[in-house]
């Protein structure tokens, strides 16, 4: 077409991409759709199998009875459920004060190189494999005590919870508006009272959420308990003795060559997930009702 001619009207119409670009586009977009569907699939499958295999063996006895010896049908994991609660509480007793304190410090005083080193260290701690934490807790507690104990398991879980609590506490405390602090200071409150009685209560809902998240994660941990709390087929509420826990029970029962035990492992897994969800729900509701003070 010569440039002298006025262009035909249809030349002004946008032609749109060529067919091969359109085909490539359609291919890429549908691949993304497919990928998203494939990612959701395993969750659906896991939930389905948990319910299908875990529900039939679930009954009251599972929660109230002790494990039975091999061959005897029935029995439950009462000691493991209680053990998990105790171990998580022990871990929380270690990690919550340190974690919340360090998080508040990072938000309220954390400036300069030392603070960024603390942040970075907390982030790095979050990436330490849980089995390594188990080995460390073994060296720190089990070796000096001379035996496996609930205390060692609590220390391991506490170390695992700490980084999440530190970083999330910092985030939520930082969100408290500056005007709160200004108002408290203007009323003549010293800085420590401002933090303790104004800033922390204002952030308490967020701190509780973050803590509960960390507790729920720790409740499902198995690896750090294998050679710290070890496991126990009997009732044990003593902190200096080996203690049963739900995840370790599931592990042992799943690997055992008895079909009945395998069934109970599925039920245990379902109970573990329910326990974790229930624990977070109950803790959130009750702690939020407390007067705004922590």
């Amino acid at each position: 077409m010569s440039p002298a001619q006025p262009s035909a009207p249809q030349r002004l119409q946008p032609r749109g991409p060529s067919w091969n670009r359109r085909a490539w586009n359609a291919g890429v977009l549908s691949a993304c759709w497919l990928a998203a569907a494939t990612v959701v699939l395993p969750l659906a499958l896991i939930v389905w199998h948990l319910l299908a295999k875990g529900l039939p063996a679930m009954n009251l006895a599972f929660f109230l009875h002790m494990p039975k010896p091999v061959g005897e049908p029935g029995g439950g994991m009462a000691n493991a459920i209680v053990g998990t609660l105790i171990l998580v509480a022990l871990g929380a007793a270690i990690a919550v004060p340190i974690g919340v304190g360090a998080g508040v410090w990072l938000s309220e005083y954390g400036r300069g190189r030392f603070a960024s080193m603390v942040r970075y260290t907390a982030d790095v701690l979050a990436g330490v494999p849980s089995i390594v934490v188990g080995v460390v807790a073994y060296g720190l507690v089990v070796v000096p005590m001379g035996r496996f104990s609930a205390l060692a398991g609590g220390v391991a879980l506490g170390i695992l919870m700490l980084p999440t609590i530190v970083r999330s506490t910092e985030e939520v405390v930082r969100l408290v508006p500056r005007s709160y602090r200004e108002a408290a200071l203007a009323l003549g409150a010293p800085r420590w009272r401002t933090i303790q009685q104004v800033v922390i209560p204002a952030a308490s809902a967020g701190i509780v959420t973050a803590t509960v998240l960390a507790l729920a994660r720790a409740a499902g941990e198995t690896a750090p308990l294998l050679f710290t709390a070890l496991g126990n087929r009997f009732w044990s509420l003593q902190l200096d003795q080996p203690m049963a826990s739900l995840p370790v029970f599931i592990f042992d029962y799943a690997r055992a060559p008895y079909e009945d035990w395998n069934r109970q492992a599925w039920t245990g897994a379902l109970v573990l997930i329910m326990l974790v969800t229930l624990l977070s729900a109950v803790l959130r509701i009750t702690l939020r009702r407390l007067p705004g003070r922590s």
Binding site: P97, I98, G99, V100, G101, A102, V104, W105, L106, E108, Y109, G110, A115, M117, V118, T121, A122, V124, L125, V128, V132, V133, V136, L140, I159, L162, P163, V166, R191, W192, I195, Q196
Partner: peptide
């Protein structure tokens, strides 16, 4: 108060060092 909170922050280092 600040010293107390700083001690908690130091604890994060202590735990990393212990590992």
């Amino acid at each position: 108060y600040r010293g107390l909170l700083t001690a908690f922050a130091l604890f994060v280092f202590v735990i990393a060092a212990l590992i």
